[in-house]
Each structure stands twice: as C-alpha cells, then as structure tokens.
Design a binder for these strands. Structure first.
Length: 571
RNA sequence: CGGGGUGUAGCGCAGCCUGGGUAGCGCACCUGCCUUGGGAGCAGGGGGUCGGAGGUUCGAAUCCUCUCACCCCGACCA
C-alpha cells in the first residue's frame, strides 16, 4: 500500500476526551473515529488490526473444531421472552419495534438465537458435540461507554456456543475452548492471565476470564505467587482465620465519638487500628434490610453477598433505611441490639474486644465480643481479598493483586438456556435429554485496545507483528530524489513478492514528519531509504520496539524483514 | 440514574466570572517560494448559525430561563 494513496489521518495533539493511552493512540494513529457515544468508525489501520485478531481467533477456533456461522444482529423479542431475559436484561438491551409494531432488540449476545437454531436442527446425540461461533457486531446500551474500543456500545465480538450430550462432554468442550483461548492470546503477543470469574448475568455454573494485564484495566484480579490459583477479585476466595485470637473478653464500654463516622475517623480518634474494628454495612436485599459485618480494613464484596443471599437486587441502603434499622444516623451502625439479619465475614469470627458503632448518635462501643454481645445469623466469605492474603488453594502462597482488561470469557452454561428453550435430543436409548451448553466470548476490538495498552511508548504504538496493520513501512526520505524513489519502490515490490505486508511512505514530506507518523502508527519494522546511505548502497532497518538499527544492502534488508516476519508469525 | 465538569473553525484552547459593543491564538487545511535524516521557515489565503431554543437589552459567546450533547466519578460487561 502506498501511504500517499491511503487513508491514515494521524493527529499530533491528544484529543481531550481520551483518558487511557490506547484510546488516545488509536485516535491519534487514525485507527478509529467516534460517531456517537460508544460507537466508532473503523478506519483502514484500525480495521486491519482488527482483521488480524479476527483471523487468529478464526484459525484457533477452527483448529479447536468450532464451526463459523453468522447470526443476525436484530433479534425478535419472542426468543428473549422465552428465556425470560426480555425482563431480566434491563436497559442495556436496546429494544425497538418494526413497522408492524412487533418488538425486536439489537443482539447483545446470541444464546437465544443459537439455541433456537440448534433446537430446530439437532435431534440426535450423533450430531454432537457441536460448537458454533461467529464474529459479529454486538450492541449493548452500556450505562457509561468509555475508553474508546475498550467499552463501546457497539463492538465486535467473537461468540461461540458449544452443545453437548452431557456434563462430562460439556467439560471437554469447555476445556478445548480454554486451551484455544490461551493460544489466541499468546499469538496476539499479550501478557495475560486466565482467572476464575463470577458468572454474572449470562448465568451458568462456572467460568474463566482472560485478563490482559494493564494498570488501566477496569478489573482487579489476584494470583497466587506459588500455585496456579488466579481469580477475579469479584470471585477470589478469602480464607477464614485459622484459630480465633486468644484473648480474655473485657467488659463492654460505651465511648462518645462526637461526629466521628468513618472507620478512619473513629480509628484516629480512639487510637484503635481499623483491623481491630468491625464495620456494619446496611444493605437492602430484595426490599429486606440486611447488615453485613466486616473487619474495619476490609471491603465488602457485594457479588459474594448477593450470591450468598440468593437475591435479585442488592444495594446499599439509603439514609432512611439505615436510621430505621439502627436507630441512628449513618456512621454509627453496630451489630449490638439489631433486629435484622446479620451476615458476618469469616474474618470477624477471629476477632475479640473490637470496636463497633453504638446505634446512637456520637456513640461507639469498645470491647465488643461475639455471642456475649450479639449474635450473627451467618458467617461467610463476603469480603474482597487484599494483597498478601493467604492463597485459598495452597498452603504457602500469598495473593498478588493486578489490574486487568477482560478480553475473553468462557462460561459453562449447563442447561440454563437449553431448558428454557427446550433444546433436547434423543440419546442412544431413544430417551429425550436436555442439551448441555457452554458459551465463549472474545472482544475483538478490546483485544486490539488491550494490546496497545501493553505495547506503546512516548512516540506511539508498538504493534507486535502478528496483529500489526502492516509488518513493515518503507520510508522514502526524499521522493524527489530519483535514486531514493527507485530504491524504495524496488524494496516495496520485493517485500510484496515475499508476502510481507508493507506500507510505502511515498509522501512528499520531510523526514521527521514521516518518522513521527511511522512511530505513531506502530509499524514494527521500518526500512529507511535516504540519499546518504543509498550512495553507499545501504538502507537502514529499524526495529520499532528495541530501536535497534541495522545498515544493510537492499537485498539484505528485504531478507531480514522476511525472516523476522516469518519468525514472528510462526505458530 | 445520582454527583461533578465541558460545549467557541477539523484538533487543542483563550475570551465569559469581574466592563455586554469588531470572535481570537496554536496546529491542521489551500496557494507560492524555500527546504529533505526526527512533526522546518517565509508570505498570502479559506474556514464560525460561539451546542440549541427562548428571554433581558439599542446591542449577547458574555447576563437570565429551559433544553440537548459529550466527558469524568459510582452500579454493568467482551
């Protein structure tokens, strides 16, 4: 491709509304342009990177035995009503009516459609295992789209769905996908972790997320330093205390704490560390108040509590509810004397003589103790793990915290959708059975964004060769110099012959201008054809990542590029 | 949806509050000259319903009311 004939609108200045580096660089490199909130045009460079990821995904999915199809973006409401997600999905589902007033939605995911397809066509155990996938634009009317392609409303996703005769076979399908995903992200050149995850609104029995490690990631994940355990903080298990601290219970004490509400304020005021305090959070679970008790330095994990209570909606209580439940304004809640359900974190079980709120204005209690002073309905793991917590799986390890970008998610669905949509088959004995499903997503655009998040410097993007829009850029420094022009053209055509994807910068611009653009758009290899070196019969080969420069003869440069590209693409 | 902020040329911004009166700067763009190893220089030029509607006023980017959009912080997710 000739740069002068192409469409790469780079910009020098960083757009003010782009927060994260991948968003800034994708805009500056002319890869994407915003059309509306969370909705983007993909320009040539962005599209090429996306196609690269798509192709890697496609190859690995095919290798794993999955079969590509394409389902519609517009889906009829009936299917969603059948799975009961028409009501459950909420406002993220973009709904509308056609001219006959029939209801439709833009597909945010395709469990319903694919299950409908399969239930019509798959009748026998002989037709499974079956794994169908597609690469297609999804629409989710996100509350807050942000970070460019990282969280758009319309986004390109690979979604796959497996169909198996029973749970054991479904486990095998899941495992195949898990391994395919590892290969995919390895081939993309990403540093990532596969972590245990909560299943969320998709539902199902268990799942793993594939997290690209990046400080800008929206998810917190933990991994064990000594074993394989890794999990999303939403899911990560905390160990309870080994044995309770042995301490004689001291007499309960009431202390005035004028206007001291937060853990920090009370801690400072009383000179008691937060780890010796218990905080009492008032929540509402499906309209019923619940109090959660946590060690002062721990945070509530709402997902764990929600799963524990089995409620549909769990939210922090408003001021009125807090006052009603505790008899005191916000900031002085404590478990002593409460009439509502109290769930305590496991860590609280090991505590003695701690500080809590006194359920009255400006009052806290010291030397509070379990059983003597109050009872707990239930002990459970309801907190977020923190850096340094012991690993829940092995004896020796401590948990490390990371930030991650979720680029892929594999779910074991079980029979949630097949039962709702009556997707059944006849087994060898002629008995009707329910199909076991799994579903597997990869955010294609997000993967590109995550890659840029991990691969950039002050000059711009540094694409790994497998997903770079072009492998190599040939910068002809002065196109008005016939010798330079001819040499650049020759290299360009030779590289094309060798199957290298090459961009020829044949614009009539100054060298610095071309270098800046080449760096910004992140082409991994650059051949510079300049008058001085050319007079010696040499051109320069520069590696974008390392900055290493080799002075080579024309043929040598072409050969080097060919070799390096082949090495990088070798799988 | 709650809290905060911003809308002025393609991009980045000043002007507004605190004096209501010609709409400005840098980059980008067009023409010419010059220049060709890290976003050059000189000269000339084009481009604005100042987010929208209403109001106050002789006169509004500026003051008032309403509205829309976008961005940031919290609950969702690939």
């Amino acid at each position: 491709m000739r740069y002068s004939q192409y469409f790469i609108p780079t910009v020098k200045e960083t757009p003010s509304d782009a927060e994260v580096v991948s968003h800034q660089l994708m805009l500056r490199a002319g890869m994407i342009r915003k059309l509306a909130s969370g909705i983007y045009n993909y320009l040539p460079l962005g599209l090429r990177a996306i196609r690269k990821v798509e192709n890697i995904v496609r190859e690995e999915m095919n290798r794993a035995g999955a079969i590509e199809i394409l389902m519609p973006a517009v889906q009829p409401a009936e299917l969603w009503q059948e799975s009961e997600r028409w009501e459950q999905y909420g406002r993220e589902l973009l709904r509308f009516r056609d001219r006959k007033d029939a209801e439709f939605c833009m597909g945010p995911t395709h469990e319903e459609v694919v299950t409908d397809l399969v239930r019509r066509e798959v009748k026998s155990y002989r037709q499974m295992p079956l794994n169908l996938y597609q690469i297609q634009a999804k629409f989710r009317d996100e509350i807050r789209p942000r970070f460019g392609l990282m969280r758009g409303r319309e986004f390109i996703m690979k979604d796959a769905y497996s169909f198996d005769v029973d749970e054991k076979a479904a486990d095998l399908s899941y495992d195949k996908m898990y391994r395919a995903y590892r290969r995919i992200f390895e081939r993309c050149g990403l540093r990532f972790r596969a972590v245990e995850a909560d299943t969320g609104s998709i539902g199902g029995s268990y799942s793993h997320e594939f997290m690209v490690l990046a400080d800008s990631g929206e998810d917190a994940i933990v991994s064990c330093a000594s074993c394989e355990y890794a999990a999303n903080v939403e899911k990560a298990e905390a160990r309870g205390p080994g044995a309770a601290v042995h301490a004689e219970p001291r007499p309960l004490e009431r202390v005035a704490t004028p206007d001291k509400r937060s853990i920090e304020e009370v801690s400072d005021f009383l000179g008691v560390p937060p780890a010796m305090m218990v905080k009492s959070l008032v929540l509402v679970a499906d309209n019923e108040p619940v109090v959660a008790l946590l060690r002062g330095d721990h945070d509530l994990n709402e997902i764990k509590l929600k799963n524990l209570l089995g409620c549909a909606v769990l939210e922090m209580a408003g001021d009125e509810v807090v006052t009603k439940v505790t008899g005191a304004p916000v900031g002085f809640a404590g478990p002593v004397g409460l009439k509502v359900k109290v769930v305590a974190d496991l860590a609280v079980r090991g505590m003695r003589n701690f500080v809590t709120g006194g359920n009255a204005v400006d009052l806290h209690l010291k030397n509070v103790n379990l059983e003597r002073d109050f009872m707990v309905s239930r002990f459970a793991d309801i907190r977020n793990v923190v850096h340094g917590d012991p690993c829940p799986r092995c004896d020796s390890g401590a948990l490390e915290m990371w930030r991650g970008i979720e680029v892929g998610h594999v779910f074991k669905l079980g029979t949630k959708y097949s039962r709702a949509l009556k997707a059944t088959y006849l087994d060898a004995a002629g008995q009707e059975q329910t199909i076991f499903m799994g579903c597997y997503g990869i955010g294609i655009g997000r993967t590109v964004a995550a890659c840029i998040e991990q691969n950039n410097d002050e000059n711009g993007i540094i694409f790994p060769i497998p997903i770079a829009p072009f492998h190599c850029i040939v910068s002809a420094l002065n196109v008005k110099d016939d010798a330079v022009r001819a040499a650049a053209e020759e290299i360009y055509f030779r590289l094309i012959e060798e199957g290298v994807e090459v961009l020829l910068d044949d614009r009539d611009e100054r060298p610095g201008f071309k270098f800046k653009d080449a760096d910004l758009i992140g082409i991994p290899l650059r051949i510079v054809v300049g008058g001085k070196n050319l007079a010696e019969g040499k051109v320069e080969l520069k590696d974008r990542r390392s900055g290493e420069v080799d002075l080579l003869a024309l043929e040598g440069a072409v050969e080097q590029v060919k070799v390096r590209v082949a090495e990088a693409l070798d799988v």
